[in-house]
Amino acid sequence: MRGKQGSGKRGTTRRRIKPSTVLIAAILGIWGLMILYPFYNVVIVSFMTEKEYVRTAFVLFPKELTLDAYMRVFSNARIWSGYRSTLLIVALGVPFNLFLTVTLAYALSKKSFPGKRFFNFLVVFTMYFSGGVIPLYLLVKDLGLMGSLASVIVTYGVSVYYMIIIKNYFLGIPDSLREAAQIDGANDLVIMLRIYLPMSTPVLATFLLFFLVDRWNSWYEGMLYLTDAKKWPLQLVLREIVATSQKTEPGMAMGLLAKRENFGMGIKMASVVVTMAPIMVAFPFLQKYFMRGMTMGAVKE
């Protein structure tokens, strides 16, 4: 069915591009545009003048561009404090994640040692069962971390899922290297630092990036543990900006009329851009590392 469509038209061209190829490329292209358009819209609205937006909210090419919304976003102290919190969480949290996860992965990648099965079970069990929100909340309270950025940093430590992928990578490093080093008198710590880690730098880079994104995007822990809004990470600040500009939209049923009356929209969109800009700018260059991590997780042998 699919192959037949338009076969007369394109099938006879000199390069012999199959009609089904055209169809597939078209479907994938449209899906790509459907993913891009909402981002384009966000960026456009963030640069639009209030006047033009109020007249027609749906614009593909605005006539006039302005930085008004960005000026107001950057004069908002909350955005700056959000950036500061998020950067602190990333700077302290990512090394914390990497250290705990990689050391565990290395230890559990050793072929056999007394208690290995027990420790392995102890670690993996946490993926299947957890105490849930409230017990963790009470623990954070008991530890006296409530209201401190430390609560957000410390409650995300080992990622068992990433640990397993890193461990599987370590398992692929030939044992003979370990044995040779052992004969030379190296202990497991030296072997980790001198052999395993240097041989895994691309993998470590990949998971550094994964942790970085996880940290950048975290908001839930902050919402639970950070009582003082001045300490909120960027994502949570954004959540609030979005929520407050929605509040001025009275009665969802009147949406059509109501939204025109306020210009939270430009600020809302500029805040979104400011929050996702670092990932958006860096992503095209880093995508291959992320994909490698995902592929490693899928293919074990």
Binding site: L100, T103, A107, L108, V158, D188
Partner: peptide, 30 residues
Amino acid sequence: EIARNKYIYLIMSFGIFYLILFSYVPMRGL
């Protein structure tokens, strides 16, 4: 065997301690 692997236990101790504190201790809260 345990003595021979003492560095493995040392290396592992951070992650294990972490999981006990943040995954197992909260289970008491259940």
